[in-house]
Design a binder for these strands. Structure first.
Length: 959
DNA sequence: AGGCGGCACCTTTTT
DNA sequence: GGTGCCGCCT
């Protein structure tokens, strides 16, 4: 993608290693390239080692890519960089806590410790369940907060508040707030007043009331305020503006009890988590921050000589502050693009980059208030702008700027001049100006998208750059459809399958909300005698009207052909057979059906789940909207469908920006009885409880919080940035599509909207290339009770899970399995030769069980398994557990030790009379290291915390 | 201009 | 349950 020779700005950044740098690196300006070169340049200095240089990325994938690319252009190899601090904030914090932070909670007045086995909760649903348990208990233990709880509709929402405060750096200590945390909770009246005044400007030169006054037109509507709440006329005043003193009136509210409540929930939740031996992502940063803030010696020990942060627009407030604590010198370089900040829901704070200088000064001042923690000067800051764009044509780049200027809703008025001041325009270095920008509108939007794709593929009007720098007609794989929501993408995928158009979804998708999955669920229910719910769906699908369905269900007089089909299904022995049969009946031959089938099979095959279990599995997946990562198979020629959020950093010659319809945004308000935190309003409770009620409901709306909320201007900035991100994915062609009701974006962008009546050509699947999809599945569970698989699955040993399956490793494992199975395979490299030697080294005949889990067939002499552990050799006297490692150094032996220890203890229970050994086999050198298993107590404690599916380890062994 | 009743609508995703 | 929007009225 990028020219191997850096341009002038890139070179300047690569060479400027010392001092403070703020880099505005717009889309497609070769940011990764430049950052990796700069890194190489820094570590090429004699006295600098990779350990001295912190390079922060925001995803693990990005960290891996950085490493790969650094290896390509500096004298360090992958092995030297394996442990180098090129990682996410979260993993860095994890490392710091693991190594030095066991006592970190004591700084917040918490006695419980972080231990080596403290696990990180990654699954949102798992944490929600834990928090619900906590909050139930908390409300029981604290009758003094009954009033607060009475006024909360969903106490479990408090987890969101806690996480938000953690991302802001607001932490509770034993009897108050850590450092100056309380200031955030109180809010900032001056900043609030400024917002208030801006929204309270009268309009049309004074002839029209202010926006704020207009919004307050509904003050009190559908509300129950306490009798002492001011009248609407007092709040709104009689002129065109809300009276000035209302600002102070609504801001001043005694929130002492509320703050105490939030504090206690927060603090006790931290304690709860530690007692249950887990941390969430926010807590990792929280404790790491406190530790680095309080332990001056440690901070200086950990501090890095160089700090670089990539995608800085995605960082949160606490991450900015963490970076300052981790920097030992002012050699700090932040690289990012405010225009691509679209992760506010993930606590990203665009102000970090937009107001970098201001925040840097302010944060350092705060950190140094009682002790000099940051000792370097905060100026000068050098700004470098990367403006040369290697991705898109100039017309696309110019057009993309309009995305930041157009209103995102009718009420949105953009300060165009202010936006323009901020934008650093990009310059294309494309060789061609093969650009089209168009917009289409149709009542049948999905068909319009498909018709448009058919019109594009093979069409010389949409030529794209080929591999040699020339131009060629586009293929399916040159086109990406970007949408705001997964829903639209999923439905589009379904429609594309109907027409036989090759299309593949990339990213997380709610797989079980597809028609395919729902119909399969319906038939499974019929087979399982959950008759009505099953037949209703099946009949509806067959075109029966609602009253007809009712009649059929009541008389149980099902259509004959369907009953026959049902009997056919009943004769099926396997789930796979049933699914295939159902899909065939409905003509589902596309990739979605494949993925559903594959996913269900991998859950089903590996377990003894009954059909009923499976039904519940699907039901839960639908209800929770749980997503499964799907990828198009490599080298397939199909259109990509993605959400805009999932597409960041990627590029496509042709981008179709679909679902440009109104009514979807802006974000709706948050429910009724909530405690919320807003800047600069501080913490507020929307409903309150009062004893003063007489014959009225005891829960009242909080009029002050209501007015405050209306004072906050609606932020559409991120909506516009989302549009910008989408447009800048395109190399040369952009098509907007909208349905019946186009949104303001399509209306206001300088592009003519063409109304079309789509005419999609239907094709059979055979004419188009099939697009295999791969789905990332969690490790399948063992047969019953606890096996290593269920333990891994329940995230007890999740930190090891990420280490599996490098491509190279997989090859070796495949070889080992094939060789053990007696297939004629020759080792292709030294790693495989070593594995062959290892297997040959065992005496006797090999009895192989593929995909087997413990307990293994005890009668056999030895068994290989291709589960989590690679080889288990069972003889009358001993059991040898061996795990191949091809990527020595990627993870420490300690991590593998946990994984093997689980197997060790399970094996010891299965074969109590044999000697058990567990070892790691490094395929590269052919050396085998027996590990010293972790004590059973540690394992046991972890096991106890995980609810076994049924029975426990011993039950699994009995079978 | 604007007050007001009534109706429809209601995400994104990574650590 | 907040809000955008329409229609109708003052």
């Amino acid at each position: 993608m990028t020219d191997p020779q850096p341009n002038d700005q890139q070179q300047e950044l690569i060479d400027s290693t010392d001092g403070l740098y703020l880099v505005d690196a717009g889309a497609g300006t070769g940011k990764t390239f430049t950052v990796t070169r700069r890194y190489a340049n820094i570590v090429s200095q004699n006295d600098v080692e990779p350990d001295d240089v912190l390079l922060v990325t925001f995803t693990n994938n990005a960290a891996g890519e950085m490493k790969d690319r650094i290896v390509g252009n500096c004298h360090y190899g992958m092995r030297d960089l394996a442990d180098a601090p090129i990682q996410t904030f979260h993993s860095l914090c994890h490392d710091v806590l693991e190594e030095h932070g066991h006592a970190a909670p004591t700084y917040l007045g918490i006695d419980d410790r972080i231990t080596g086995s403290t696990r990180i909760i990654e699954d949102e649903l798992v944490e929600q369940a834990l928090f619900e348990e906590f909050i139930d208990r908390f409300s029981d233990d604290h009758p003094e907060y009954d009033d607060v709880f009475r006024a909360l509709s969903n106490p479990e929402d408090l987890l969101g508040l806690v996480n938000q405060l953690a991302a802001k750096g607001v932490f509770p200590d034993a009897d108050g707030w850590y450092r100056d945390g309380e200031r955030h909770l109180d809010g900032d009246f001056a900043a609030f007043k400024q917002q208030f005044d801006e929204l309270n400007e009268s309009r049309n030169g004074g002839s029209k009331q202010s926006l704020l006054r207009s919004k307050l037109g509904r003050y009190g509507r559908n509300k129950t305020y306490l009798p002492d709440a001011p009248e609407k006329s007092k709040i709104r005043g009689s002129g065109k503006q809300v009276p000035d003193d209302i600002a102070q009136l609504v801001f001043a509210e005694d929130r002492g009890e509320l703050k105490a409540f939030v504090h206690d929930v927060y603090h006790e939740y931290l304690r709860f988590a530690l007692r249950r031996n887990y941390l969430n992502f926010g807590m990792l940063q929280l404790f790491a921050f406190v530790l680095l803030c309080e332990n001056h010696e440690l901070r200086e020990e950990v501090a890095f000589e160089y700090v670089m942060i990539d995608e800085f627009q995605d960082s949160s407030e606490i991450q900015f502050k963490l970076a300052l604590l981790l920097a030992g010198t002012n050699n700090i370089c932040v690289v990012g693009d405010w225009k691509q900040s679209i992760y506010r829901f993930q606590y990203a704070d665009v102000a970090n980059i937009v107001e970098f200088e201001d925040r840097l000064g302010r944060f350092v001042e705060q950190l140094n208030s009682d002790h000099e923690r940051v000792s370097f000067p905060t100026s000068p800051i050098t700004t470098i702008e990367l403006v040369e764009n290697y991705r898109s044509t100039q017309r696309i780049l110019d057009f993309s700027e309009h995305g930041l200027r157009v209103p995102a809703a009718n009420r949105d008025d953009v300060d165009v001049d202010a936006v323009d001041d901020r934008i650093v325009s990009l310059e294309s270095n494309a060789d061609h100006e093969n650009t089209t920008i168009e917009a289409v509108q149709s009542d049948e939007e999905q068909e319009a998208v498909l018709a448009k794709i058919q019109g594009i593929v093979g069409n010389e009007d949409y030529r794209v750059e080929d591999e040699d720098g020339g131009l060629r007609a586009p293929e399916y794989s040159d086109v990406a459809v970007l949408t705001r929501t997964r829903d639209f993408g999923r439905e589009l995928l379904g429609t594309a399958e109907e027409y036989g158009l090759p299309m593949a979804y990339e990213g997380g998708i709610e797989l079980f909300r597809t028609d395919q999955a729902k119909l399969l669920l319906a038939w499974l229910r019929i087979l399982e005698d959950d008759v009505d719910r099953g037949w209703a769906v099946v009949l509806e699908r067959a075109g029966y009207a609602l009253d007809e369905i009712d009649a059929v269900l009541e008389r149980e007089a099902y259509p004959e052909n369907m009953v026959e089909f049902c009997e056919e299904l009943q004769g099926m022995e396997t789930l796979g057979g049933v699914a295939r049969c159902v899909f065939a009946r409905y003509g589902y031959a596309g990739p979605t059906a494949d993925v559903v089938l594959h996913t269900l099979q991998s859950v089903h095959n590996a377990t003894t789940q009954t059909r009923g279990d499976l039904i519940r599995f699907i039901e839960r997946a639908i209800e929770a909207g749980s997503t499964h990562e799907v990828h198009a198979g490599a080298g397939t020629n199909s259109v990509t469908v993605q959400t805009i959020h999932a597409t960041k950093g990627l590029e496509y010659p042709i981008v179709i920006l679909a679902n440009m319809n109104s009514g979807r945004f802006p974000p709706g308000g948050s429910g009724g009885g909530v405690i919320s935190y807003d800047e600069p309003n501080g913490v507020r409770q929307r409903k309150i409880y009062s004893e003063e009620a007489h014959g009225l409901p005891h829960v009242y709306d909080n009029w002050q919080a209501d007015v405050l909320q209306k004072c906050s201007p609606r932020e559409y900035d991120e909506e516009r940035r989302l549009l910008y991100v989408a447009i800048t994915r395109a190399e040369s062609h952009v098509v907007f599509t909208a349905g019946e009701d186009p949104n303001t974006f399509v209306e206001e962008l300088p592009v003519e909207v063409e109304e079309i009546a789509p005419d999609v050509t239907e094709r059979t699947q055979k004419e188009t290339e099939q697009t295999p999809l791969q789905v990332e599945m969690p490790v399948p569970e063992g047969p019953r009770g606890h096996t290593p698989h269920t333990l891994m699955h329940d995230d007890v040993f999740e930190d090891v899970e990420g280490g599996r399956g490098t491509e190279f490793g997989t090859q070796v494992h495949d070889f080992a399995e094939a060789y053990a199975l007696g297939e004629c395979v020759e080792p292709r490299n030294t790693d495989e030769a070593h594995v062959k030697q290892l297997i040959d080294g065992f005496d006797g005949d090999l009895l192989v069980e593929e995909d087997a889990y413990l307990p293994l067939s005890v009668d056999g002499d030895r068994v290989t398994i291709s589960g989590i552990v690679d080889l288990v050799c069972v003889t009358p006297d001993c059991v040898e557990i061996v795990d191949y490692k091809t990527d020595r150094g990627r993870h420490g032996e300690e991590e593998y030790r946990k994984q093997l220890s689980v197997y060790y203890h399970v094996a010891r229970e299965v074969y109590p009379d044999r000697e058990i050994t567990a070892s790691i086999f490094y395929t590269e050198t052919g050396s085998r290291h027996e590990i010293d298993p972790q004590p059973i107590d540690d394992i046991q404690r972890l096991v106890e915390e995980v609810e076994p599916p049924s029975g426990g380890v011993s039950e699994a062994i009995d079978q």
